[in-house]
Design a protein around this nucleic acid. Sequence first.
DNA 1: ATAGTCCTGCAACGGAAGTGCATTTTTTCC
DNA 2: GGAAAAAATGCACTTCCGTTGCAGGACTAT
Lengths: 138, 138
Amino acid sequence: MKAIEKFLEEKHVRPTAMRMLIFKFLAQKQVAVTLADIEIAFEKSERTTIYRTIKTFENSGIVHVIEDGSGVSKYALCEAGCNCELDSDLHLHFHCEICKETQCLTETKIPHINLPPGFTATDASLVVKGTCDKCNKE
Amino acid sequence: MKAIEKFLEEKHVRPTAMRMLIFKFLAQKQVAVTLADIEIAFEKSERTTIYRTIKTFENSGIVHVIEDGSGVSKYALCEAGCNCELDSDLHLHFHCEICKETQCLTETKIPHINLPPGFTATDASLVVKGTCDKCNKE
DNA sequence: ATAGTCCTGCAACGGAAGTGCATTTTTTCC
DNA sequence: GGAAAAAATGCACTTCCGTTGCAGGACTAT
Ligand SMILES: [Mn+2]
Ligand SMILES: [Mn+2]
Ligand SMILES: [Zn+2]
Ligand SMILES: [Zn+2]
């Protein structure tokens, strides 16, 4: 918990109680979570606080958003030392159609794409759908 | 217009007036459109009709949905002879951060991705953001 | 200790997607 | 052609998610 506090300070985010709890929650999860997921985990706290906490995390490069096509945004911690939005960090996101969970496959980077003439890229997102390793074992 | 009628019939979609108009609208557009875009183009018709028309088109493989991260779904006609959702047809979608428009780059297919062990894919979507050819000329 | 800044809680708003049901239009079949 | 059935449309209402305004509380700096 002390480590979390230090981490948030390094990111210039004041380590309030709620922020540390939400950070811890995200760190424990192996999959991306929705705002609703966090709400359920912290019944006592307010929707808005969670919303703004995540926004703060997002703006500070602590979490990144994942649009997996399910219609709702999901969030996951950025990799250590990740500068979100930089080409080098763009990894793949996998959405399992069985368990409906989305996870970062941080080892699998998005390959370089050759765009048609005239187009220039600043960012890319790749979402693969299918069956995840856990669901394939059953 | 007669060609549109025939095309819809081939797809087992009854060629009603509204459906043909919406199809024509989509065919003229070079970019993906939102339901709201269609509403604006056809002020007289009902939101629900447009909504259900697009759903019908989607289920019949006439249009495909594009989630470009803007939060709203966009739609574009499938390529001729496209079997949506099949690997061979997966092309890239480009979202321009200047003009905010999204287009299908049907020539640029999604490269094959090597997933970690245990994962199997059925579908993929790749959205690249940046500046489109038109906006780069200015 | 005071003022200023930041965080949190509550309430309300907004856009977009989706559903139920009555009405109209189109097809089917005699 | 006309009645019955099926399909499409229009209208109202709902839900879900994200977002904002504002007021009170906690924290920080001097
Ligand atoms: Mn990720
Ligand atoms: Mn496309
Ligand atoms: Zn799974
Ligand atoms: Zn552009």
